[in-house]
Design a protein around this nucleic acid. Structure first.
Lengths: 107, 107
DNA sequence: CGGTATCCTATGGGATACTG
DNA sequence: CAGTATCCCATAGGATACCG
């Protein structure tokens, strides 16, 4: 199961984006990795089932949700930070790693 | 590129195994995730091209190699440790994490 | 905007056979 | 044992259209 999460590129991208503060569907779509809408939809649902992500209604009609990390999802931050540090050292252009991300305190 | 490495389940499995000290082709095959031979072969070649893994001849005829992590590959250990810590906390059965792995010192 | 549905193809990867 | 090669199918996921 851990492998299904960390070993999936789109899940990683979504996790990173959520840590960066993105929450709405279209905001994920703006990320440089260009995830397809159906894939995004699919992964968000999966991640919700896995308890990594929770969504909350922020508008009634039509229904609109925003997504945030659960504690379980938050706890993956160290994995992403480790990735970022590695990427900064070995392939600086390969992974979006703003400083405020690296400097985030692990809960 | 970082995503192609960390976001690929088989690459992660191989990295973990190499950190655990496995080196020979068939030893990888014994891992619980049951990688297929063609996939293993493919990933090892990929990882070699990416500079994560180096192989050295340990027997001449027929040619036999063993694999080890380069410095660049070694440097991914923190990612795997972060995964392991997360897995131990949230899904204890999902990822092979012997204590000596977690306790390894990052170079 | 915030999604869901459908279509369609590339390819990942399992099974298996084969070679040195 | 240590791989390489082939076959073959499922499915991931890109493109696109569509709906509330």
């Amino acid at each position: 199961m851990t492998l299904d999460i960390v070993g999936d590129r789109w899940t990683l991208v979504i996790l990173r984006d959520l840590h960066l503060g993105k929450r709405r569907f279209s905001q994920f779509l703006d990320s440089p990795e260009r995830i397809a809408t159906n894939v995004l939809s699919d992964r968000l649902a999966q991640m919700e089932r896995e308890g990594l992500v929770a969504k909350s209604l922020y508008q009634d009609r039509p229904k609109r949700y925003e997504y945030r990390l659960s504690e379980k999802g938050e706890a993956l931050l160290p994995v992403l930070q480790a990735m970022s540090r590695w990427a900064n050292r070995f392939v600086p252009d390969s992974w979006t790693t703003p400083p405020e991300f690296l400097n985030r305190k692990t809960p």
